[in-house]
Amino acid sequence: MSRHLLKFSVNGVAREVEVPAERLLIDLLREDLALTGTKEGCSVGVCGACSVLVDGVLLSACLLPAFRVDGTEIRTVEGLASKEGRLTPLQQAFIDHGGFQCGICTPGQLMAATALLGEDPHPTDETIKHFMMGNLCRCTGYQGIIRSIHAAADEGAARA
């Protein structure tokens, strides 16, 4: 019933959108802002396809009421590469090391792995598996994803 004016930024761009109270972040992104990089998979917070960063925190856009992003900075898969199209080391690693097959889970995998590397720049296999456990890949390409994350971590180390 109630409607709310939300002011926030997505991938560095300031936005103002009025939404009904019950709007979810996934619909705010995909329907209101046409940012369809973020995918909706299970709609119940299990599969990880809708993973996004809100003020740097990894969340499921399908479970988060849109009103909660008022005043925040959101980062979606569209905001990983630079404006000139330069990929992040993680994105490049997914291409170089077979980090995706069909691609539907990839935006979520990239956002989750970005959050992981932000917390732990050199994760072990165990850390990667525990952190990424909630990002399902129905092609079962998990080994490639783990390889890609390690490669991006090494790349980060090489550049540091």
């Binding site: 917070g45 990880g48 925190v57 990894l58 969340l59 479970l63 909630g134």
Partner: peptide, 9 residues
């Protein structure tokens, strides 16, 4: 508990 995304929310 569940996954990291659930634990964050």
């Amino acid at each position: 508990i569940a996954t990291v995304r659930i634990r964050e929310q």
